[in-house]
Nucleic acid binder design. Sequence first.
RNA 1: GUGGGUAUAGUUCAGUGGUUAGAGCGCCAGAUUGUGGCUCUGGAUAUCGUGGGUUCGACCCCCACUACCCACCCCA
Length: 417
Amino acid sequence: MIQAPKGTKDLLPQNSGAWQAVEMSMRRCAALAGFREIRTPVFEHTELFQRGVGDSTDIVQKEMYTFVDKGKRSITLKPEGTAGVVRAVIENKLYADPLPVKVYYLNAPIFRYENPQSGRLREHHQFGMECFGAKEPSADAELITVLLGMLTELGLRNLTVHINSIGCPECRPRYHELLKAYLKANYDELCPTCKERFERNPLRVLDCKEEGCKKIAKDAPVIMNHLCDECAEHFAGLKSLLTAQGTPFKIDTHIVRGLDYYTKTVFEIIMQSEREGLALCGGGRYDSLVTQLDGPALPGVGFGIGTERIMMELLSQGIELPVESVCDVFVANLSADDRPQAFQVVSCLRDKRIKADMDHVGRSLKAQFKYAGKIGARHVVMVGGEEALRGNVKVRDMETREECETPVNDIAAFFTK
RNA sequence: GUGGGUAUAGUUCAGUGGUUAGAGCGCCAGAUUGUGGCUCUGGAUAUCGUGGGUUCGACCCCCACUACCCACCCCA
């Protein structure tokens, strides 16, 4: 038997309602803030991610779904959301519109070749928002606030945004040297992986989970204290905007994102329950990414949030989303001869935008009632019998168990009034 | 990529080296006369993950593969 590929999941009817509810919140919150939807291809030229995400990152080095197509092009399935959006903005010259360009993507499939486990799949889905052409910290603050508003609207509680600034090409190299000098003094006590990180990306040592490394990281120089004036001012601006607005945040100098393109602001939301330490959402500012991909000098900020992880968090916080009913009116037939009439009634109700359904498997009247109860129909209309001789149908309220008779020709009016 | 656990009806799980593999839930049908949610009764459904091997004989023992769950790395 053919199974779904490892690390993939079907979205089944019993769950799609909850997903749609989440999607509705995402759309509404983004639209309220002036963001419009963008959809970019599921695959891109491999080079886009090598240059955008960064050749040295784990994502590019060992997690991409890359293949050569029949035209001998190297193609890669999107391993993250931002690069494709940036490419589309440059290619379609969206920056010619009045700035900023504010876009969001809704449940874009994201592919990473990893070993699946709790909260980790090979194909997952992300909602993301990106804002181009705004260098002011209010753009950063806006994203964070809208994001938190959206999660709150869904009913999630106790989520805190962790923010940090990792500087810019101006000040980060200087800090790098400082950090390396500090780490060198404690080199022997670092864990094996961190010894490797020392050369490649010393920042990563700061969020190592090994006890020994944590201790060393605690007293490491903090980048916050070594930002250039511009970066420091930007970060101060972000903090005061969030504070003034009442958006809760926590400064976490250990946040280091795994993608190379971030500058200045980086932020994360960590899952509060279920599995501690798992990121629900990650994002930040990327002021040099657009030029790096041969676009104009255009600053950017954005974030991506994993929908599967939102669903996990909703589940662990015991939140149930309002889901649309499957059927409001079930039209039962008393005998097989009444089915054409039932079919007409169903069609008539649907024309009036009433969710209606009928028997399609030849059930007895009793079984039809049972079925109607199971699919949650509030009313059952009975077609046939003595009422039919009078041109009427009987309607039963499944909750109050009250029944009444009404002309079949007025059936739609009966439910719309 | 590395490590641990698991793989039996739609589902959650029992089970024994030896003729017909079980339960709860779900599903279907009944409990006289045109009706649901409770209760009762009956019924259907499993090449016991796939492929090898050991054995007179394996669902139960061994090996491989695959998938799932969990953890590390990393991330959403």
